[in-house]
């Protein structure tokens, strides 16, 4: 009963904001928006202040990696910039804050940041504390191989029983890959960290490393072309944008934007300028989940 009513309320809210957003922006002419935001909303407040604070990773190549200029760069950062632009805030007015995995809920709750785009997997436990817009990207487990190796095309390549794969002890990816192996004893190698796995890949002791594609992209990025991702990811881990739990207006605003950039090509551009340099398969933007 309660669920139904909540869903109805959400639907109404979505419709209302959706109309307002569509009327106020023009995808063909980028630049500071002149739209007026709903009075008292986060959007209006940020637009008036001409300033936004965004939390992201500073150590995740392809998504959020702090560069020599002190500014982070990556796909998450580009998404953040697109949101700021939609709010009428220029990129140089964004304040970037490093948000490591463990602190993300806390900084949203406290209001230290206005939103978090930081390889942030949507899950129910986190939804207890904050709200997610998105997903804007579905990460997932992937396989990394040496660039000159075309014999592995996906997890099924391990079924035959000759290819060896490395992952991290006690991790979900290590458990996931097992069902593709013919014999764990002769095919699976587990270390305490990924650096050792990459080393084993380099030494050809193993043929592949498997974990979340985002992590693998980082190794691909720093390998000078020695490694590549093989085939497609084979599990789903949706990344969302974290906002305050009760700020439904802001969440819907971001969701609308995500739908818009999926259509107007700026999503693809954001990918190709960043993570796409290491992963040529430009992802299709996933459908947002307006829960």
């Amino acid at each position: 009963m309660l669920m139904k009513r909540l869903a109805a309320a959400a639907a109404i809210a979505v419709l209302g904001v959706g109309v307002a957003a569509c009327g106020g922006t023009d995808p063909a002419t980028p630049g500071p928006s002149t739209a007026s935001f709903k009075a008292g909303s986060t959007m209006e407040k940020l637009n008036k202040a001409q300033k936004i604070t965004i939390g992201t990773k500073f150590d995740q190549p392809g998504f959020g990696l702090k560069g020599l200029d002190g500014k982070p760069a990556g796909f998450d950062v580009e998404i953040g910039k697109l949101i700021a632009k939609e709010l009428g805030i220029p990129a140089d007015k964004i304040e970037w804050v490093e948000t490591k995995s463990a602190v993300r809920e806390e900084v949203i709750e406290k209001g230290t940041v206005d939103l978090v785009v930081a390889t942030y997997t949507i899950n129910d436990a986190r939804k207890q504390r904050i709200a997610f817009a998105g997903p804007y990207y579905v990460a997932g487990q992937h396989i990394m191989v040496r660039s000159d190796d075309s014999s592995i095309t996906g997890p099924d390549s391990f079924k035959e029983g000759t290819k060896k794969v490395c992952s991290v002890q006690g991790s979900t990816p290590a458990t996931n890959i097992k069902k593709y192996l013919k014999d764990e004893a002769t095919q699976l190698v587990l270390f305490g960290g990924y650096a050792e796995c990459v080393d084993a890949l380099k030494n050809k002791t193993v043929d592949a490393v498997t974990t979340d594609n985002v992590i693998l992209l980082g190794f691909v990025a720093s390998s000078n072309g020695a490694y590549k991702l093989a085939g497609n990811k084979f599990t789903d881990e949706p990344y969302g944008i974290g906002v305050k739990k009760d700020d439904t207006d802001f969440r819907n605003f971001i969701n609308d934007l995500l739908e818009k950039i999926a259509k107007d090509g700026s999503y693809a551009k954001a990918w190709n300028d960043t993570a796409g340099k290491f992963d040529k398969n430009t992802p299709t933007a996933p459908a947002v989940n307006r829960y």
Binding site: Q169, E184, A185, V189, L190, F191, G192, E196
Partner: peptide
């Protein structure tokens, strides 16, 4: 050993 490559 379980953290140094050995599985199982």
């Amino acid at each position: 050993a379980g953290f140094m490559g050995l599985y199982g």
